[in-house]
Simulated assay, not measured.
Amino acid sequence: MILVRPEPVADMEPFARAAQQGDPGGLARLLRHEYPAIRAIAIGILGAGPDAEDACQDTAVAALAHIGDLRDPSKVRPWLHAIVRNNCRMILRNRMPGLVESAGTDRIDSFLGDPAAIVERGALRDLVWHGLRQLTPATLPVAMLRYFTVRNSYEEIATLCGIPIGTVRSRLSEARRQLATVLPLIGDHRHLDQSAIDTERGEEAAAILSAVANRVPLPSVHERWAEDLVMYWPSGRISTGLAPIYDVLHSDYQMGARHRLTGVASTPGITIWEADAIYGSGRPDGFPAAGTWLLREKAGRVREVRLIYGSSALSA
């Protein structure tokens, strides 16, 4: 559980302001004080149990990531309470048949806006990403997919990572525990410029998604992507090397699809692309509207790629 021991502090605004200026200690004290109220809200809506704990943990991580975008620090309490209520409402909807759990638009975005865009603007952006880079190799991609992508239900994360849904839950719990331990300790460290990292990886993704459709040679891609990389397609097919990726993107191009990059999240060893498929004469039935790519690197080269579509898939 993250930071559950309350402190007798009446005014949370100074700690919210300190957190926005990059002081993780301020945010730690804020969460220690407010966590019991957050938990009470979650239990009041969901009842005691793992769902309420999940809602609380996701609220704490959202605060860690997005405190920099809070416009009025004096309203930090209702801000946190609104996040946990949104989390709980999403979980209630997901209890209904046919719905999947998501930490995306309905859970956080409805109150805060796009998570990745907020982290890009927030004062804690680089600190949060520094914290993410401290996660273990098993928990890192799960946390990145959960909090910084659109297709982030447990089911979708499980598919992208090639693990059972139960493992997704346990790794997210471990990621939250690690972040709660790591973030308060890294305020004085020098952090990499996350925007520069994402810009570099975004340029690579945009080049591939646009140039490959016309089979334009990309020497830089050939240098960074291993010739024997393994590609896991949404249909379950597994291929080896770059050629099948070129072939599928070229086939999309012939069917009138253009791929537009919409988001990038990257750390050393892991890169995630999100892209929309744009059709000149309207999207045909059964064709994907969007896709999420998970790239894994080893020794600086992309060795494994997994792809899921945002709607029914092509035949790849």
Score class of each variant (00 low, 15 high):
E304L: 01
I108C: 06
P184L: 10
S153F: 01
G113Y: 04
H81Q: 10
G282P: 07
P14S: 08
G291H: 06
L140D: 05
A277M: 11
L314Y: 08
I272G: 02
A42C: 00
L314P: 01
G202S: 11
T105E: 11
D198P: 00
A180W: 11
I272K: 00
V305S: 01
A206G: 09
Y246E: 14
V84R: 03
D114R: 03
G47F: 00
T59F: 01
M144E: 02
P141R: 00
A16R: 01
A28M: 10
A313V: 02
A116Y: 09
W79T: 05
L124H: 09
R121N: 11
A103Y: 13
A277G: 03
K298P: 01
A116H: 09
S220G: 06
A143Q: 02
Y279C: 07
A275F: 14
P6K: 07
R89G: 12
R215W: 13
E200A: 13
A158Q: 04
T136C: 07
W129I: 07
A28L: 06
D23C: 04
T167G: 00
A60R: 08
R258H: 14
A211G: 15
L127F: 02
A18E: 04
G300E: 07
I2L: 12
L295W: 04
S170G: 01
G162T: 02
D188W: 06
T139W: 00
P268Y: 13
S170A: 13
A180S: 14
P217A: 11
S74I: 06
D109T: 13
R258K: 14
Y154V: 10
A313Q: 06
E120Y: 09
D114A: 07
G113H: 03
L92T: 07
